[in-house]
Design a protein around this nucleic acid. Structure first.
Length: 513
RNA sequence: GCCAGGGUAGCUCAGUGGUAGAGCAGAGGACUCAUAAGCCUUUGGUCGCCGGUUCAAUCCCGGCCCCUGGCACCA
């Protein structure tokens, strides 16, 4: 069986992880969990990009070796994963031997095929910044900004990859596979970009200028620069695992779609004769309180600290509930608070607790068997059938925000059902008919909760598991079966109580009241 | 400048060629199992602006305005 193979972009280890990094992991994780739940054999890869000039510079500034520097920052990124409850199967570092070996292999192969050639590159070079400058780096009056120091025109030999030759092929491929990039408008952006002629891609740096990289196998005086190093991770990580490549989805930020993933990576694979990924998902960016994320202004969400304070699942829920995949979204604490209290605490969490409470109070803590379903039960069951059919379709279309909305609507309907039955009144009656209705009500609310938790599982896995646990329920791994309305909870002993999402107070309300 | 996305109730957004929808917030009510939660009812919008097509446009076409992002060997 072919694996479902999904990847995140690898993070560049030149700073600490922020909300954007966390979001991409969570989004990919949600998809991975959904596919596992649906029975696919999933392989989920994430990792870090460790080579390059900025890492070399940062290491030098701190007076440590590049390896030591990236060891430290990589550990920080790696630590984020369990914190976010990410279910990745592998974690790749571009400094891994397994990676370097594959990169060098591909480069050698392309060199042998004549896809890589050496040429001279002429341009303006800033010694202070150790980089070539573009015309757009100039001041409006044509001079170079102060930060570059002395700028001189120099000539440098480098290796180039023949991108140009594949432009027509790529245009044809994207035209024939119109849903290759999600969302669709991003695909248009790629084709727009390809209307201009491509240039060949410079893939090397001389070692005297940059030594923190993978040496070219055919010329050890150079290291390969950025794209052959970074993009190849998706392939190098699974080269020894038969049946995994090609990737089903690369999940990336919109900033690295064009040209790296949609152009360079596709052409690299094609030139190497390797199968192409089946799709690319380009997600949007988070702003914080309506403004661009920025460390210098403190407009920044630090995921580890946030999780420590509010929990993993609330963060996961918020980013999936709030963002329409592909669009940008805003993160504000007040919006987080509103979602948290309204949907997680009041709607879902409170339903869990009142269900446990009533089962304990009116049925001795054992979930009763339901009598024959009346009108209210049938209505709720019909709604479940709708939601159960609709949510997986929404998942397929990456509309996780809508899927969560529908799931929560089912939770709301369950709360409304409880009001209609009013078990607390039935519990005071000795009439056999009322007792039967009471048993039915308790069984129905527990069953509804069990089912809803299954739809929430990919997004808030730990909480879903806790809900199932307090219902005395052990899920099986047959999706179609376990999402059927049933009486399988009958006789289970429930927990005494559970405050799943403690209600949060707005920061400034404590003083007032 | 070019390209793309967006401009719909106080807020976040959904939506369709035929009297505008949801959630949250606000207001009122009945209830009490529960995290002062839940449920019911309800206030609220010239659907960015101007034209056009149409019996009929928020949805189609043209123009304009505003916000956001991208514009290559910089990551």
């Amino acid at each position: 069986m072919k694996s479902f193979y999904i990847t995140t972009a690898i993070d560049y280890v030149n700073g600490s992880p922020h909300l954007g990094h966390a979001y991409e992991k969570v989004l990919t994780d949600v998809i991975a969990r959904i596919r596992r739940m649906m029975g696919d054999r999933v392989h989920f890869l994430t990792g870090v990009d460790e080579h390059g000039q900025k890492v070399q510079q940062s290491a030098r500034q701190r007076g440590v070796s590049p390896q030591q520097f990236s060891d430290e920052i990589s550990a920080e990124f790696r630590a984020l994963l369990p914190k976010l409850n990410i279910s990745n199967d592998d974690f790749i570092r571009t400094t891994d031997e397994r990676h370097k070996r594959v990169v060098r292999g591909l480069l050698q192969q392309l060199h042998d095929k004549g896809e890589i050639y050496k040429a001279e590159y002429q341009g303006f070079y800033s010694t202070r910044q150790e980089q070539f400058l573009q015309d757009k780096d100039r001041n409006p009056d044509g001079t170079w900004p102060e930060i570059y120091g002395e700028v001189t025109e120099i000539t440098e030999s480098n290796y180039f990859f023949k991108l140009k030759n594949y432009q027509d092929w790529l245009v044809r491929f994207l035209t024939e596979n119109e849903n290759f990039v999600f969302p669709k408008f991003r695909q248009k952006q790629v084709l727009e970009f390809l209307k201009e002629p491509l240039n060949d891609l410079c893939i090397s740096r001389p070692k005297e200028r940059l030594e923190w990289g993978i040496p070219l196998p055919f010329d050890e005086d150079f290291v390969t620069y950025v794209w052959f190093d970074a993009l190849t991770n998706y392939y190098s990580a699974v080269v020894d695992r038969p049946g995994v490549w090609p990737a089903d989805y690369h999940v990336i930020g919109k900033d690295i779609l064009v040209p790296p993933h949609a152009v360079y990576w596709m052409i690299m694979l094609q030139a190497c004769g390797l199968p192409l990924p089946k799709g690319i998902i380009a997600h949007g960016w988070w702003s914080i309180n309506g403004a661009k994320m920025s460390k210098s202004t403190g407009n920044f969400v630090e995921p580890v600290g946030f999780v420590d304070q509010y929990g993993v699942d609330p963060l996961r829920y918020f980013v999936m509930r709030e963002m329409s995949v592909g669009q940008d979204s805003d993160f504000s604490f007040s919006q987080f608070l509103a979602r948290y209290n309204a949907e997680l605490a009041n709607n879902l969490g409170n339903l869990v607790n009142r269900t446990l409470n009533m089962t304990n109070r009116f049925a001795g803590g054992l979930i009763p068997a339901a009598d024959e379903a009346g009108v209210p039960e049938k209505e709720l069951q019909d709604l479940w059938k709708q939601v159960q059919a609709e949510v997986p379709q929404l998942w397929d279309g990456f509309q996780f925000n809508v899927a969560l909305e529908r799931t929560m609507a089912f939770v709301t309907a369950t709360n409304a059902y409880i009001e209609k039955l009013a078990p607390w009144k039935l519990g005071k009656s000795a009439e056999p008919a009322d007792q039967a209705r009471l048993r039915t009500a308790l069984a129905t609310m527990a069953e509804a909760l069990r089912l809803a938790a299954h739809l929430l599982e990919p997004v808030i896995p730990a909480s879903a598991t806790r809900i199932h646990a307090v219902l005395g329920y052990q899920p099986t791994d047959n999706w179609a079966d376990k999402t059927q309305w049933s009486g399988r909870l009958q006789g289970n002993r429930v927990a005494e109580s559970l405050v799943l999402f403690p209600r949060l107070q707005p920061p400034d309300s404590a003083a007032k009241s």
